[in-house]
């Protein structure tokens, strides 16, 4: 058997990881404990897409204090596990959001905040906006323009339920370079 480069030090890492993953999937207790950990450690990457960011700030502020729920805005996509799209996605921003999403380690979730990313909101016929579902597999929508911090908190609670049940988002958009619809957005005129 030919040893691959790198496996000299570690043995066959892929194999080990696969086996461990299968064990966790089969073992109900293990998956329960892990999901518990996930539900109380939801760290969104520091990414503000539009004006709903002010309500996100208010939500992490003292009055609503989302850190109570284990929801802590954190600087870096590598260490966080939620993309929180707060507000309108423009074409320019959508690329960034997709990049941030791809930089994030699995498992990861998406909360889309605001009417603009849900169906366009008052910017529905703008020439430079896209919907969240074209970019990312959204788990939870939080409607409102802007949503109140309580609504965001409720969205997080719903996401927790979803994680506990182990559900995944049904919508799996392709990566941005293959997303034809987004390319055509500018052509509405």
């Amino acid at each position: 058997m030919v040893q691959e480069e790198g496996s000299v030090y570690f043995g066959n890492l892929d194999e080990i990881a696969k086996k461990a993953g299968q064990f966790i999937k089969k073992n109900r207790l293990a998956s329960k404990v892990i999901n518990w950990g996930y539900t109380y450690s939801l760290w969104p990457a520091y990414l503000v897409t539009a004006c709903c960011g002010t309500e996100l700030a208010a939500a992490s502020g003292p009055r609503f204090d989302l850190e109570r729920l284990g929801f802590l805005s954190y600087g870096n996509p590598r260490q966080s596990n939620i993309v929180l799209i707060d507000g309108t996605l423009t074409i320019k921003m959508a690329k960034v959001v997709r990049t941030v999403w791809e930089q994030m380690p699995e498992p990861k979730w998406v909360i889309a905040m605001g009417a603009c990313v849900l169906d366009g909101g008052i910017f529905w016929n703008s020439y430079s906006t896209v919907l969240a579902r074209d970019i990312l597999p959204v788990d939870i929508y939080v409607p409102g323009c802007p949503p109140r911090p309580e609504a965001l908190a409720r969205g997080i609670m719903m996401l927790k339920e979803k994680i506990k049940k182990g559900e995944k988002s049904l919508n799996q958009p392709t990566s941005i370079s293959e997303n034809k619809e987004m390319r055509e957005v500018g052509n509405v005129g």
Binding site: C51, T88, K92, M93, I122, F123, N125, S128
Partner: peptide, 21 residues
């Protein structure tokens, strides 16, 4: 321009009152 949504163009497309929001 990461949050550029075309407020001017959209307002030109709306009624005067609907431009308020």
């Amino acid at each position: 321009g990461f949050v550029h949504r075309g407020v001017e163009k959209l307002s030109e497309d709306r009624l005067y009152v609907k431009a308020i929001p």
